[in-house]
Design a protein around this nucleic acid. Sequence first.
DNA 1: TTTT
DNA 2: TTTT
Lengths: 175, 175, 175, 175
Amino acid sequence: MLNRVILIGRLTRDPELRYTPAGVAVTQFTIAVDRPFTSGQGEREADFIPVVTWRQLAETCANYLRKGRLTAVEGRIQVRNYENNEGKRVYVTEVIADNVRFLESNREGGAPQESGSYAGSNNSGGGSFGGGGNAPYGGGNGGGSKPSTPRNNNSRDPFSDDGRPIDISEDDLPF
Amino acid sequence: MLNRVILIGRLTRDPELRYTPAGVAVTQFTIAVDRPFTSGQGEREADFIPVVTWRQLAETCANYLRKGRLTAVEGRIQVRNYENNEGKRVYVTEVIADNVRFLESNREGGAPQESGSYAGSNNSGGGSFGGGGNAPYGGGNGGGSKPSTPRNNNSRDPFSDDGRPIDISEDDLPF
Amino acid sequence: MLNRVILIGRLTRDPELRYTPAGVAVTQFTIAVDRPFTSGQGEREADFIPVVTWRQLAETCANYLRKGRLTAVEGRIQVRNYENNEGKRVYVTEVIADNVRFLESNREGGAPQESGSYAGSNNSGGGSFGGGGNAPYGGGNGGGSKPSTPRNNNSRDPFSDDGRPIDISEDDLPF
Amino acid sequence: MLNRVILIGRLTRDPELRYTPAGVAVTQFTIAVDRPFTSGQGEREADFIPVVTWRQLAETCANYLRKGRLTAVEGRIQVRNYENNEGKRVYVTEVIADNVRFLESNREGGAPQESGSYAGSNNSGGGSFGGGGNAPYGGGNGGGSKPSTPRNNNSRDPFSDDGRPIDISEDDLPF
DNA sequence: TTTT
DNA sequence: TTTT
């Protein structure tokens, strides 16, 4: 009946923008959030929490977020599951974000960017990677930063780019 | 740097109280939270979110929560991982709760219990299931408790209806 | 840049539905939230927090909420100010809610209603109190409804008790 | 029963550190949070939200926060009231913070500081303004920043420094 | 009375 | 598999 998450942490990699077969933008990234205490061994640990954004917000995140950036994320916890190639049910827990705030700007030494986007209207999509990424608030994009090429290739990760269509079905589309 | 979750939903089962080898109480349960929208096929789905509580709060939850009960949970997302018996790394995402509110009492037809506990002091543990379940706030009640009348609500309420037009202008309209 | 509030408490009065001159529905109510500690004199105190809802949600609240009901509110803090009749600036702090959950049903002894509404589309307003109060999710129920059995909870639950020791190590112990 | 607030915004002034007669540190500051929409006149507005911190966290905030800094605040809404000098009851709404995160460092062009503090242990206090401000994490304090001298002098503001003891009683002391 |  |  109520499901609300707020996180502040840093991206572990550049975000990955994809499109569903129907052309809806999705971007995924992981945010590292330091724990508020140290482990038994005196080490400061972090939780690595997967985040998913959809549509306009997906494109904004792909355009503006980068590895290492301090970021605030607001959303809800979602647990989806699928059957892997060994016939075993795998559970994936993600934060579906509807609000993302960029707490550090693109420019070196610059101030945090007073931007971010609430989940916006549907994007009729083109399907081409990185296409149509409308900048919010008319801003220059701040650097050669086109959305990073995916680096990982683990068939268990629903977001890995292995040339096959993503395993997020249209059914997972929120709102 | 910040990691906060608030959930309201229902327990899918009775909670399970265990003790670590060192005698620290842990209880786990899963809370079903309905999604705020219907799926493509028009069905209302839910997320099943695992919750973990420790120490005194663990014992209180084990004593007072039951399958089906409406419950509010406050905590943080934790992602731990371990190697399974096939040598594969498995990731487990849980909400570590530090505040749990029982929104329905134990007795049929009763009012929600105005209780719940913040994470408390360490419990040196006994090991026996259900042992030591100290009632919060002085005692089993759960009883005839009709919704408490709000404490005081005299002329101080700025929203009392005194027949004059409201002082909210159109400018205050959000969204 | 981010402003999020979640409250659970009880209404101090029935909600008040008004309409702006342009016919937009607004309802206001105050929610009493017990403090999580007792005062120096050992009394349990509460905060009385004013809540405002707009449009469809305003009408739903006016139709379903009543004095004393346990209610969850999600929204943002707003501080507005106006000049009073003595020419003095008065500051008013309210929670502008975009999500309200009714944790107790209308009928005595009934289960909490699995309803509530996200801020919806504009309502062109009628002006008559209680008009148009569309029940959310198809209808008056409120009835014999014993807590719904959680939808499904088959073998997928990672916390089912299968007799083996739990896989949480002492290292996972927080705080 | 549950009362949680999370804010991200900028300080409108340097924070003000005081001590209660019993020597407990309190600091107050206001955080400006931009609204997520523009007003009818197309202007972007903000809410100015008063924040109070106690004890160790109060001293940390006084030492590290400055006007204009981007800051995350976690806490609860508190509504207290007192009688002003005209015998009228005045309501004051504040966020009592138990977690504050400094999202911008003290150094120009530097990275956000991975610090902040959870509400800590009591401080037996000295009573002298600015005394005893133990730096967290052993850090140098980062600049000529001694706690700002108070600037405002409105007898209605419980935090104004007019030479009289503050009107926050020991009773308001949380936890 | 306000921050970028 | 991870961020500063």
